[in-house]
Nucleic acid binder design. Sequence first.
DNA 1: GTCTATAGACTGATAGAC
DNA 2: GTCTATCAGTCTATAGAC
Lengths: 189, 189
Amino acid sequence: MKGITRKEEIITTAAKLFKEKGYSAVTMRDLAKAMGIKAASLYNHINSKQDILKAIIISLAEEFTEGMQLIQSSNDSCIDKLKKIIELHVKISSQNIYGMASLNNDWMHLEEHLKYYQRLRDDYENDFRDILKSGIASGEIIDIKPEVMLFSILTTLRSLYLWIPKKEDVNLDELSNSLSQILIKGINI
Amino acid sequence: MKGITRKEEIITTAAKLFKEKGYSAVTMRDLAKAMGIKAASLYNHINSKQDILKAIIISLAEEFTEGMQLIQSSNDSCIDKLKKIIELHVKISSQNIYGMASLNNDWMHLEEHLKYYQRLRDDYENDFRDILKSGIASGEIIDIKPEVMLFSILTTLRSLYLWIPKKEDVNLDELSNSLSQILIKGINI
DNA sequence: GTCTATAGACTGATAGAC
DNA sequence: GTCTATCAGTCTATAGAC
């Protein structure tokens, strides 16, 4: 009773392969081989290759949306909201490194759910931008173009999946703190 | 006498398509259609699909290597070297937005030239890390894990191609300055 | 739940006419 | 330099046996 179904096993194996070569370059035969079965057997558990991609990406995107809604509705200062966003990315990314690769690089291959994904992503960026803007308005954050700040911070957080696995001994709280310091206070003395 | 050959036209058109869907998802028929010719005609100018990818990626990687060598051999302070690296990324990325997408996302599909690319990339990261470390040693840069700093700054710079085209009116010097401020001095008051 | 066999479409690339 | 025609291989997915 490990509670892990064959379908879930297929999805996590697929995410691992998608991270290495991208969705389009991974064939159902590649996936089957990694599972130790034949390609046709996969279809007893999943409906299509596309369904695997959807399962990986949409659940992650919704996880970010929920996290952002919680942060946004809090009474924290803008800087504290930023710190919580950083913690959110560290947490989700470390729990699903392979899935994060698909979320970042293979979302354009979504078919039926592409527009839904794009709406979630746009909303997330807008919420993030609003936090930065209100931080500027209240004097908490320097008055530099919020667009450049948003881009700089968000791309760093979105790329965490590339970097976390390389340092397996890293403490996640420590990583969140280092990132907060670097992204918020800068790197010079 | 525009000096732009048909081969170059194919490569830039391919880079544009690779940015949208990735190398693996773009077929030679897609590329031919975008050029207004038939797929077979492409082979009068290029040897293979793989050769196109190599042409896009390797020239860009070498451009970064040359830029880094120039910066490294200068007598600037570490902070000034960092500013020059930021300018280097802004300059190259703005000149070849589409190629930067392949450099970032499709390098793993290089065949013959994969190891060469990886060596250039590793060397670049090592040079970057050395600059940060000597900045820490000299007291110019705060003593936080250089690995987290390197990751944070470099992923921001590597993702510039995603963001530059969205703001066509942006002044590149202004962008370099904003980025320097944000990445080096942080965003809080 | 896995297998073999296969359908039907698509892939990169080549041969040879114009 | 571009075309038509085509090859040989691969792709996702299905049918049906065990």
